[in-house]
Each structure stands twice: as structure tokens, then as C-alpha cells.
Write a protein that binds this DNA or RNA. Sequence first.
DNA 1: TGCCGAAACGGAGGGAGCCTCCGTACGCTC
DNA 2: GAGCGTACGGAGGCTCCCTCCGTTTCGGCA
Lengths: 202, 202
Amino acid sequence: METRRRSTRTDARRNEERLLAAAHTMFTEHGTGASLEEIARRAGVGIGTLYRAFPNREALLEALVHERFERLAVEAEERLTEPEPRAAFAQWLSSFAESSATYRGLPASLVATMRDPGSPLYVACHRMHDTGVALFDRCRDAGTFRGDVQADDVLALAAAVAWVSKEVEGDPEMPERLLALVLDAATGATTAATAARPTSPA
Amino acid sequence: METRRRSTRTDARRNEERLLAAAHTMFTEHGTGASLEEIARRAGVGIGTLYRAFPNREALLEALVHERFERLAVEAEERLTEPEPRAAFAQWLSSFAESSATYRGLPASLVATMRDPGSPLYVACHRMHDTGVALFDRCRDAGTFRGDVQADDVLALAAAVAWVSKEVEGDPEMPERLLALVLDAATGATTAATAARPTSPA
DNA sequence: TGCCGAAACGGAGGGAGCCTCCGTACGCTC
DNA sequence: GAGCGTACGGAGGCTCCCTCCGTTTCGGCA
């Protein structure tokens, strides 16, 4: 195992870290459309430096979320062996929605990524997608889900939930509630939540 | 009834129409973020003219969709007397989602509008929202819907469906399918569609 | 330690978009 | 057909995107 080609200069590495930190802050505050010049400014770095490290906005975003989506794929694979298919899928879907809502604007990027093989996140996203679908199919095979619901539709709804939650803001429980609704729709039966408020008390 | 103050010059009116037409085309092609300068160019009008007629992008958008959302409120009110509460709500929700998806980017504007009393669409949106909720409550009172589902959650999901459909594009039936799923979730029971593909044939 | 080449830096600058301001043109009314 | 006032249009100031290239700095080697 040679450690040759370790040519990355220390200042370069330091700047990259600063850029990532600044980008995370800015994306969190202003969404994925935040000003890249402002990010460079906050990182105490010239704009040219930002563009050498990350050739475009997408690359920067990718550097920030790549690992997270890799983990999501791994999580899905692990959950494939859990005893309760529905719970396994439900929990994974919740992770998926949460990750998708990391930044305002991220759900849209993810949708675009799925259709663009040139995107740096393309592979990770598809791996995650495929394992998510496997998790879903397991539920359907077990008879937990309706037979007429498509996995992609449920994933699309989860992404949509991530979007609307981020867009509305100010209701931290909204994602859970909406996701529960989506899952109930896929199941074709109401779950625990239903008992809470009966249709009419009298 | 005096027709005084009809001072609007004919060239002004003509330009306004051209601007609206150009804006509709551009918003349709590029979403609500389309270049206003390009819109002025296509309308054969100076940028200053655009800004006098519509002080900002939101005003332009509002001029294009206002009537549509007014009609949505009226539609909801009319449907309040229909015999089948669920069908009435379902059909209205479908109209709502369709209108929300007029342009890419519109769902986000609508969500923002609901929170901004200064927005020109604020009143129309809230009227539409309130009548939509009334339509929903009628279903719940009739026992057609689960008691624990909030009207706002269902409306949020419909907006989310409009968003994801517009974002994904290339699947014209997606909105219907997702909306049907959302409605099933609210109902707490599967509908007609369920029979199509049984869980497992053997 | 000091030298030197490669690697990295940073910002000027061109292009596009947003929006304002104001000198000019033109439609309307009399 | 003259004059008033409405409406026009685009220059210009600002921000942002992204590229290009002269300058600086790191770090391996003597």
C-alpha cells in the first residue's frame, strides 16, 4: 500500500474544510441557492479557491451530502433482514425524508439527480433508491402493503413531504404526520395513530 | 355608474397583455424563476415598462394565476352542496393540485403566500384554503374520513404532490395516482383502485 | 537551512439578471 | 393640432456566476 500521490497541500485541505463548513451554514440558512461568493467570503477564501475545490454548486452540495446518502443505502440493506418488514420500511423512509430535507432546495436537487447520469450523486442516489425499493417490495410480498401501489410513488411522496416540510417550516412534527399518512395509504389500513380521535364522540 | 377615470392608455393595455402572454410562455418553459428581462424582450417592450405594469415578479405571477385561484374558491363553495362529500372533496383537491402545478415553482410561491399577509394573492389563497377545509370537514363529519387527520395536512400533501409532479415531469398520470393515495390515507380505507392488483394471485 | 518547481491562491473582469430613475415620446382631450 | 400628462425604454448601479491568469506559498531535496 503506497501512500504516493499524497500531493494535496495542507493549505488546500484546510481551505476545503473551511469551505464545507461555510457552505453548510449558508445552505442551512438560505437553502441550496445560497450565494457561492458569500460562502467563499465566510470561509475567508477567494472565489477562485472555491471554484478550484468545487467546480460548481452541485459538487459542493454533493460533498456535503454524499456520505449521508451512502449511509442511507447501507441502512436500507441492513434493514432487509429485520423481522418486521413494515417497521423496517417505515423507519428507513423516515430517514430518507429527513436526509432529503437537510437543506431547503435539496429535494429538488435529488429529483434532478435521479435523472442525470452525469451528476456526482447519481450512483449513490440510485443505489439508495434500489435498496429502498427492495425494502418496499418486501412489505408487499409479505402482504403488508396494497398490491397496487408503486414503490416509486411512495418514494416520490416521501420526497414531496420533505419538500413541503422544508417549505412550510415552523411545524417540526409535520414530516412525521405526513409520512404516517403516506404509509397508511400504502398499507391500505389505518395504524395506531387512528385511535387518537374517534370520528364523533356522541 | 360613471366610467370616469378610464385613463388607462391603449398602448399601456396592449403592452400589459403582451407581457402577460410572454410571461405565461416563459413561466411555462422555465418555471416561475424565468428571466424578467427576457419576458420584456419577448413582449417587445422595455424592461421599465414591465416594472411599471408589474412592480415585481410576484405581481406578474399573481396577475396570471389570480383568477384561477378565485375560481377554485368558488368551486369549493359550490361543491359544498353536492350529495357525495368524498367525491366533492376529491374532485376539488384534484383541481387544486392541478392549478398549483400550473408552473414549476408555483407550489413554493403558494406556500409562501399563505404566510405573507402582504402578498397580493394572500386573500384569494386564504379564501380558497378555508373553503377547501370546509369541504374536508364535511367529509369528516359524514364519517367518510378518519377523525385524526388534519385538513391542513391533506392540503399540504396535495401541494407537495403538485410540486413533485412538476419536478419529475414525464409521467402525466403521476398526480392522479399520488392524489388517490393521499385521499385513501385520509379515508383510512382503500378505494376502487385497490381491486386492480391483488396482493398475491395464488 | 535555503532553493525552486509545482500546487494553490485570489481577484479582476465579462456576462447575466434585478430593479430604479429619468429624459423622451406619444396617446388623448379639447 | 397643441399641450398635458401618461407611459415608454434603456442606461446604470448592484449582485451573482464563473473563468482566467499573474502571484504567492508549500514542501521536497540538497
